[in-house]
Write a protein that binds this DNA or RNA. Structure first.
Lengths: 344, 344
DNA sequence: CTGAAAGCGCTTACAG
DNA sequence: CTGAAAGCGCTTACAG
């Protein structure tokens, strides 16, 4: 579980103090860049630091100062490029602020999330950025992290405490996509994919419905099709719903994966997306631009979201008493060929 | 840079000792599961641990015991699903072994890698798993991590010290792909993509050449085409090389991205991969199975490689004096439609 | 089986 | 401007 740091003993402030003929206190002041120490003394100490290959023991310093220099990042699905980019952005911004990232990946398992959070807490992070696993229990998380740890929840709502929350502007995104299809003349537009019990799906559906109603159209219930947001599932679901699509001319999809799956299903049924059926995605994954025809979708900039999450968390760390914030990150419609089909 | 842990003071062994009427030493023994303490005493202490919401301070324990419970994971390109899966595998296996993952993402920048390693070292990791940034300097890394830290290098060779090294079996993978195309009757086969100065490209080219020569064919120099391994670059390069491809009937590609880019380039030139041109990839990214025609490629199981890397590193942590190992991870040919083109 | 004491590597008042 | 002393939260011989 833990391992002895065998090998040569690391050099400490005591070694440096002895080697440069000053007290440990003075070495510490040099390390922390205090203006109190004389230039000559500083130079003497710095020479020894370099000569002996000193490396600062931040854990010891944190213990003494009652500070933390780490932030825990708990991610539900690191294999999803969206979250991987997000993680990279978080790590980048935390690094710039002098913090280190403690990673925990949960693979959408609430049990693993529990274990991971418990383990991370023992390392006294200054805060936690949590992209919750599906069906995770907010109250349990609350018990685990305590009332005094800074927490930022990302992407998925997690009821149970009054945490800061950062999410994409799902409603606006879906509304933009729907309005785009409406502007092209489509009227019988489906909303395809996602689980109706997830907050992001609910929000996207809401945006779709808003746009439809604003255009004077009442979406028929059968136009709202639920489906696990994977490509394979989406392709399968299309086939099962053949009947529903005889009158529909376009679909706003829950995300790009679903859109690409639907595309496969449509092709298998002899339809040609972009020519006699229009569709849009969500996320702008790299493949969206590469596929034929390229996919109209919403750009969400996961790396920028990661940076934003890190910054929000650090603000929270600085001011624990500020009221909790719900931040909605902008999304941007990217128009490509897949939505170019004329109304049939 | 670091932040005070404000809020209520966390409860310590001293609090628990006082609350349960025993010494701190006894509390510590309970925490560490020592068999020396009487069942009644243990129960008494555990009740207080729960009641007061004690959370173990692993940093303090590590300081006192001169141990570490973390491993640094430094990744060159987290936005690449291959590395993201790898990271997830590492984190999983480390977690099971009781270690925590300190993440550092370098975005292929040697400068960032330098900064990240320096920062990570201050947190005294038990070891480092390093997937080096392009053009990083092994000697510099060596200076940074010192001679006594366990290091496992992944994926890309890093000359400069005698570290453990885990890589894919690039040579065998390319040989399998080439043999597959040869068995289908192709003889004028190109090797497309990659930078000739990267170790992985060299190895894959070697496997290709081996297979060709074993089949009695001497690859012509113009069949070896260099190209940055991104899709866009690959598509562009194809067009520039139109002349070279008039007699070639198949290509072994450096990886899936390159293969998918080449495919786009071929289609743009009126060729139909899988029908009048055969190609193979490397990596088996999710898209390989989804594209039309699906891509013949080599499965590398990045998550399993991550687990393997974690295990190798922990072995090294346990035995610093064992000789350095070069481990080659198996890859598996996955035959799909893209290589089904007849010889023209 | 339990407690008193020392110490991991650092920092911080407090004297001088 | 520099040093002696105490202490962060834990563990570990050493007595008893």
């Amino acid at each position: 579980m833990t391992t002895p740091k065998s090998g040569r003993k690391p050099v400490t402030v005591t070694d440096i103090a002895r080697a440069s003929g000053v007290s440990r206190a003075t070495v510490s002041l040099v390390l922390r860049g205090s203006p109190l120490v004389h230039a000559d003394t500083r130079a003497k100490v710095e020479a020894q630091l370099k000569r002996l290959g000193y490396v600062y023991n931040r854990a010891a310093a944190n213990l003494r100062r009652q500070t933390s220099s780490s932030v825990a990042l708990v991610i539900n699905d690191l294999s999803n490029p969206f979250f991987a980019e997000f993680a990279a952005g978080v790590d980048e911004a935390l690094g710039e602020a002098g913090y280190i990232t403690l990673l925990g990946s949960t693979n959408e398992s609430p049990e693993r999330q529990h274990a991971v959070l418990a383990s991370l807490m023992e390392h006294s992070p200054a805060g936690i950025i949590l992209s919750p696993a599906e069906h995770s229990d907010g109250e349990q998380v609350q018990r685990l992290v305590g009332a005094h740890t800074a927490v930022l929840v990302f992407n998925r709502e997690l009821p149970g405490a009054d945490w800061d929350f950062l999410a994409l502007d799902n409603r606006r995104g879906a509304r933009l996509a729907t309005e785009h299809l409406l502007a092209l003349g489509h009227r019988r537009i489906a909303f395809f994919g996602g689980h109706a019990d997830s907050s992001s799906c609910q929000e996207r559906r809401q945006g779709y419905i808003e746009a439809m109603i604003a255009a004077g159209i009442t979406p028929e219930p059968r136009w709202l099709v639920e489906c696990t947001p994977s490509r394979v599932e989406a392709a399968r679901t299309t086939a099962e719903l053949a009947a529903s699509y005889t009158d529909v001319t376009a679909a706003v999809c829950y995300n790009d994966n679903v859109a690409l799956g639907l595309k496969l299903g449509l092709i298998a049924r002899g339809l040609r997306p972009g020519q006699n059926f229009a569709l849009t995605g969500f996320d702008d994954i790299p493949e969206a631009a590469q596929t034929t025809p390229p996919l109209t979708t919403l750009a969400v900039e996961p790396r920028a979201r990661g940076r934003q999450a890190a910054e929000l968390l650090l603000e929270r760390v600085r001011d624990r008493d500020a009221p909790a914030r719900h931040i909605v990150a902008p999304v941007q419609l990217v128009v490509r060929g897949s939505s170019g089909a004329p109304v049939s």
